[in-house]
């Protein structure tokens, strides 16, 4: 897993922005040439991917726009309503100016949070991260998981 983190292919953002600005993902033709260029550029430009990373939501709950104690049902319906907005097939119905949230990201968040055991582990990792901040109190759970997920980057989230 460690290896996969090295090249996160920041095409994430570039693919999205191109497909949405074209507004016609159904005809796959149009954005291909742009996309290759864009993904390679962003690959090469560290600054750009850093900028992308800084815009990222802090947690998977934020990605799905639900609270941390949301019920499985709420998570499911949040996923569906976001899918209706952000799935590339729905893109023509959407205005371009909206934030470029990626459907793959939404789906990955949903995949984790809809699986009870994966969600539990993820919750623990969230606590572990917060636990290391001085203002947060250390919980018993954090101790038991220390060394398991010591850092949390968006890439680690993608690996679920």
């Amino acid at each position: 897993m460690a290896g996969t983190l090295n090249l996160p292919i920041p095409a994430v953002s570039s693919v999205r922005s191109f497909s949405s600005s074209n507004g016609a993902p159904t005809s796959s033709v149009k954005f291909l040439p742009h996309q290759c260029r864009a993904s390679m550029q962003s690959f090469a430009t560290e600054t750009r991917s850093a900028a992308v990373a800084s815009r990222r939501p802090a947690s998977l709950y934020e990605v799905l726009q639900v609270s941390q104690n949301a019920s499985p049902r709420e998570i499911k319906s949040a996923y569906r309503s976001l899918a209706k907005i952000y799935h590339p097939d729905s893109a023509p119905h959407r205005s371009e100016s909206e934030d470029d949230q990626d459907f793959i990201e939404i789906h990955n968040a949903y995949a984790t949070l809809s699986d009870p055991s994966a969600r539990a582990i993820y919750d623990l990792s969230l606590m572990a991260v917060r636990g290391r901040r001085p203002q947060m109190s250390l919980s018993a759970i954090q101790n038991s998981t220390s060394g398991f997920y010591t850092t949390r980057r968006w890439e680690t989230d993608q690996c679920w």
């Binding site: 996969t4 090249l7 095409a11 497909s19 159904t26 005809s27 799935h87």
Partner: peptide
Amino acid sequence: EINVCMDIDAANVLRVL
């Protein structure tokens, strides 16, 4: 490290990077 990335868009187009 040789990173092989595969990308399928909603139109089912597959790209290998």
